[in-house]
Design a protein around this nucleic acid. Sequence first.
DNA 1: CTTCTGAGGATTGTATACAATGATACGAGA
DNA 2: TCTCGTATCATTGTATACAATCCTCAGAAG
Lengths: 242, 242
Amino acid sequence: MSNFDVKQEVTDKYSLRGRVFHKLRDDILNGKYQEHEELKEMTIGEEMGVSRTPVREAFRQLELEGLIQIIPNKGAYVTGITEKDVKDIYMIRSLLEGLCARWATEHITKEQMEEMEENVYLAKFHAQKGHLEQLAELDNRFHDIMYEACDSKMLEHQLKDFHQYVLRVRKKTLSSINRGPKSNEEHEKIMEAIKAGNADLAEQLAHEHMINAYENMVKCGLHEVYARQDAVQETIDPKVKK
Amino acid sequence: MSNFDVKQEVTDKYSLRGRVFHKLRDDILNGKYQEHEELKEMTIGEEMGVSRTPVREAFRQLELEGLIQIIPNKGAYVTGITEKDVKDIYMIRSLLEGLCARWATEHITKEQMEEMEENVYLAKFHAQKGHLEQLAELDNRFHDIMYEACDSKMLEHQLKDFHQYVLRVRKKTLSSINRGPKSNEEHEKIMEAIKAGNADLAEQLAHEHMINAYENMVKCGLHEVYARQDAVQETIDPKVKK
DNA sequence: CTTCTGAGGATTGTATACAATGATACGAGA
DNA sequence: TCTCGTATCATTGTATACAATCCTCAGAAG
């Protein structure tokens, strides 16, 4: 096993810096802070009852995670994601998810396979019942299982990173439309391909799964979601650019 | 143009933190610090004449860049890269470089095209003369040009990240073997495909280019390079694992 | 009325002091 | 001799103090 935890997750949830990091990340992903909103070290620190030091360190990490942008001697701003960024991410992910499915086919363990089957089964149940919340949760988990099963720390980390990026956008579309059930059907096919040991098919299906997810997102209002934000961006950009 | 500088480069070269970050990164990539060597905040700070604060912040960033691993309350260690990590990186890169070549074909500017042609031409010259140092430099630059030409901040950053990872390994192999000239021939073909607007071919060639680079590396002693380090790793791992 | 300028305040950048944690070594007891 | 506990020290984690920078806005000059 590799001991090379590339871009290791910030697992240190119990240090102040770790707590600040995780809380800020969640807040940004959940939309508590608007895009392009300025984050002040002191304000955040006071809110969480800590000094500026751990906040600053968390900021540096969030910057590399791509969630905020720090302009020297000026401030930290929540990053905006443009329509094109989302498209690029999905194109990149479609390739990597394919590779991941291939490797997962080759390396998945018995336990992981079982969890995957359970996941698909459960999701089918919630789809029938119309439980969108649980469906979204299971959808995320399905991908995580596959990332872990591919047995590559490098790839796993890349994909988890991307997955996180699009969560901000996905939250607004997946649960609102009936992509959920369709998505799970595709999961089932991917799972079957993996179970059958058909790496080529698994790769192909996972690849298409991402393309479909993206196209559905476009069809169901990605543009609307971003229409307002792009306008805001236009006005703010010049100032931010220093 | 996107204003979303994902995982933005640490461009702040003039703050102390920025300088520490860049110097440490260079030192690690250049092998000044051994893999698994412990980096002490105070020692580094004294060497560079700064306090621990900017050093700590640089550490947090280097951790997310994957160059060091920080164990809470214990220390920062230069990460090791296993043989499998290198292989995974090249497999991932082969896909992304292909995508990059495709997008570059669609978006490359006149200036970028000219620089690319110049690059190949110059490299051909240095290859004849046996200037391995310049050849390696031009090789890096060729890829950078393509990353920029693909006109995707997301993809560009991903690839630059990976490129950097393997630099540590590549330094030991590319310049030592006669891969240089062969590599440049492949660059030329990729360039021609891009110039001809043949995206499919460019993608294919760039993909193969990576595979070839990896296979050459394996053939030319990747295993030997890592034989020693893997041994060291075995002994250090348990301690590091906390 | 517009434009330049500079003083003041707000915010980030860095250094230092203190707290908490982990590693080590030594000695007592079995 | 071996093991366990404890004292001590080295190192990291956090808070605070101070320095540097940037932004704002009032006021003077044109």
